[in-house]
């Protein structure tokens, strides 16, 4: 999640964040594996039912270009359009300076999201 969160930096997971509100685009969320000891920190860029694509590192949602001011270094990622399944969101890290093949990103079931992040 560089540069927003540096490696080995410290943040709290705010679990009640989605108790009374929906996940929005650009939210930073924690995603669980089998439990809550190990989690991924990612940004939500796509919502259920939307069509997402990367062209030369630029994000397109439903064929509209989306500005991502939090991305500093951008590699020319290319990802063919794909529809996000119901009950899923599309997550990706802010560090786009890495090759696409070595970056963990994609759609996950909403019930994998434990909460938001503070600060």
């Amino acid at each position: 999640m560089e540069p927003t969160y540096n490696d080995a930096s410290f943040a709290f997971c705010w679990r009640p964040q989605y108790a009374f509100s929906q996940i929005k685009r650009f939210d930073i969320v924690t995603v669980r594996f089998t439990g809550k000891s190990i989690m991924l920190l990612k940004r939500v860029i796509g919502l259920p039912g939307e069509t997402l694509e990367f062209r030369q590192g630029i994000l397109y949602i439903n064929e509209k270009q989306i500005q991502e001011p939090y991305v500093r270094h951008r590699r020319p990622w290319n990802l063919a359009p794909r529809r996000i399944k119901p009950d899923h969101v599309y997550i990706v890290g802010d560090n786009r300076g890495t090759p696409m093949s070595s970056h963990v990103f994609g759609q996950v079931q909403i019930n994998r999201i434990i909460g938001g992040v503070v600060p």
Binding site: F33, T34, G35, K36, S37, I38
Partner: peptide, 21 residues
Amino acid sequence: FYDTGITFPEKTQAELTTTLK
């Protein structure tokens, strides 16, 4: 290994779900 869950579908078989870090 973290957050390991174990179920026993049979007496001599077990299924684990776990996170490997």
